[in-house]
Write a protein that binds this DNA or RNA. Structure first.
Length: 553
DNA sequence: GATTAACACA
């Protein structure tokens, strides 16, 4: 008896291991049939194996989900564990594969409740995560209530998922209340709360919390660095990265920069043009033997390209063993940025030939290549290709590119027709492209119309008034210039965000802006000029350094 | 049977 029990157990475990090796649904089906037909298995083994099968097909290999669903539908009375697997599977599924209108995870949960099965402290975090992803504040709050009623809100996973939910959905105060009420907080609780402040733009409170944290992990560092990059405090982000690096040199410190840190820092370098810093990160990768995967490869292409180094971007790209849509898109966008329209399209053809599907951003890259090179016909063909062959619904920025192409080429009437006829509400980029065209080609009437729409959209944006003034000035209509200037004064329109520049010297990024005190600005500029001195050969008639020195004194 | 937090292309 005991021996047969042992044999049965071994047989069961062998099948369980076999499930993990399945490569396709045919193999899954064969094992499934064996489970159903085998006389050696007891009822509880059968249940165990079906749940293993379900777990493997629903969670481990997401593309087997449809098979998991068919298995699930055949289970007569699923228990809590089975429901948890399916709810989790739906909740972790990517948006694009998902039914966006209904929420299958919540539907299943309702079905579970109506079958008299109560959730546990695992069910709730899965569902809350789904609400977070969907920004579904209503359902998330209901789940919070349900958690309180069912006595699961003392569970740290439930609390953390709710903190993250409120943080991500912009309810930072609710997140903070929850956070403050928690008896025990772990690193996830702190990270979720910090992310909430970062997403809400309260960077200083995020930093304060970060500083008061005892056990930071790589995610804490990555979150704060990313938050500062997104909040345009690049210099602080670089300083934090350096601090992280210094700490990681200490062998007792387990926190080391990982791929996500690197990807974030590279994108920050790309954003501000910090080439030395970016190059240093690249050498850091080589030195530490960190694998240059697709994400980092893409970030490097983007960084070199945006910093003006096309050759290096191409080198990195060519060395990438695998290239996905994002990698190709980054390369195409970089070629476009450098004005190589033809090469951008050649890259696109290669991408198609390799069977990588373009997405809507790839077409933004291609269309901007056309805009930069004045290729009107090519732009039109590209738009057609996107909509007719790839069935990509054009978004506002595709229209903005098309309007840009047409208006730069002086086809202003056609551009306006496109704007008026587009199925989406034109945004500031669309009208802005038209206004830009009017500026180039001196079309006052259309410029006035475009400027009016822009001012309706963003009444306090100074740029549109300035552009309009420029059009009037070009046409010699100085009375109108005065009128617009007076209007700006009356409405108290000023440049909202002070102009700010970053300059890199010896690998350190220095930030200076016009809002600083005169003394600081002067000091900074004098310092920068000093740094530039010797690097630039001054021409007699263009002694701009001298000019600036005179200006600031 | 299993849990929550961070990243790249416009």
């Amino acid at each position: 008896m005991l021996e047969s029990e042992t044999q049965r157990f071994a047989f069961r475990n062998a099948i369980a291991r076999l499930i993990e090796t399945c490569k396709n649904t045919t193999e899954l089906k064969q094992i499934h049939a064996q489970i159903i037909a085998s006389p050696k298995l007891a009822k509880r083994d059968h249940e165990f194996l079906i749940s293993r099968l379900l777990y493997f097909s629903a969670i481990s290999i997401p593309r087997f989900l449809s098979y998991a669903i068919s298995v699930f539908q055949r289970i007569q009375s699923p228990d809590l564990g089975i429901y948890n697997i399916m709810i989790r599977a739906y909740a972790t599924k990517r948006e694009r594969d998902c039914d966006t209108l209904s929420c299958p995870a919540l539907k299943l949960f309702k079905q579970m409740l109506s079958n008299g099965i109560a959730p546990d402290s695992l069910t709730i975090p899965f569902l809350v995560k789904e609400c977070t992803r969907r920004f579904d504040v209503g359902s998330g709050r209901c789940l919070h209530g349900l958690g309180i009623k069912s006595g699961h809100c003392g569970d740290i996973f439930v609390q953390n998922s709710l903190t993250s939910f409120y943080s991500t959905c912009g309810w930072v105060d609710s997140a903070r209340n929850l956070f403050d009420e928690m008896c025990d907080r772990d690193v996830v609780s702190w990270n979720s709360m910090i992310t909430g402040y970062l997403k809400g733009g309260n960077l200083d409170e995020a930093l304060r919390l970060f500083r008061s944290m005892k056990n930071k992990n790589a995610i804490s560092w990555n979150s704060i660095i990313t938050g500062f990059v997104h909040g345009c405090r690049t210099k602080d982000a670089f300083d934090l990265f350096r601090e992280m690096l210094c700490l990681s040199e200490d062998d007792n410190n387990m926190v080391k920069p990982d791929k996500i840190t690197i990807a974030t820092v590279l994108s920050a370098c790309a954003h501000v043009g910090a080439f030395d810093q970016g190059k240093w990160v690249h050498s850091f990768l080589t030195r530490t033997g960190m694998e240059c995967d697709m994400v980092i490869g893409t970030a490097l292409v983007d960084m070199y390209g945006k910093c003006g180094y096309l050759r290096q971007a191409l080198d990195v790209f060519e060395e990438m063993p695998e290239k996905d849509t994002l990698a190709w898109t980054a390369m195409i966008s970089v070629l476009a940025l450098h004005g190589h329209c033809k090469k951008a399209f050649e890259a696109f053809e290669k991408m198609e030939a390799e069977g990588v599907k373009p997405n809507h951003i790839t077409f933004v890259g291609l269309l901007s290549a056309c805009a930069h090179s004045g290729s009107v016909e090519r732009g039109r063909q590209c738009f057609e290709l996107m909509t007719k062959a790839y069935l990509i619904e054009p978004q506002v920025h595709h229209y903005a590119c098309m309007v840009d192409i047409l208006s730069r080429a002086g086809l202003l009437q056609e551009a306006e027709k496109l704007v008026r006829g587009m199925p989406l509400k034109p945004d500031v980029f669309v009208w802005g492209a038209l206004l830009g065209g009017c500026q180039i080609h001196g079309d006052v009437k259309l410029g006035e119309r475009a400027a009016k729409c822009l001012i309706d959209l963003e009444p306090l944006n100074h740029a549109f008034y300035v552009n309009l003034c420029d059009i009037y000035a070009k046409a010699g209509r100085f009375e109108d210039v005065k009128r617009v200037r007076a209007l700006m004064k009356e409405k108290e329109i000023r440049k909202e965000v002070a102009g700010c520049s970053l300059i890199e010297v010896d690998g350190t990024v220095h930030e200076f802006s016009v809002t600083g005190s005169a003394e600081i600005v002067t000091k900074q500029i004098a310092w920068i000029l000093n740094a530039l001195n010797g690097e630039i050969k001054l021409k007699d008639d263009m002694n701009w350094v001298q000019y600036y020195i005179l200006e600031i004194q």
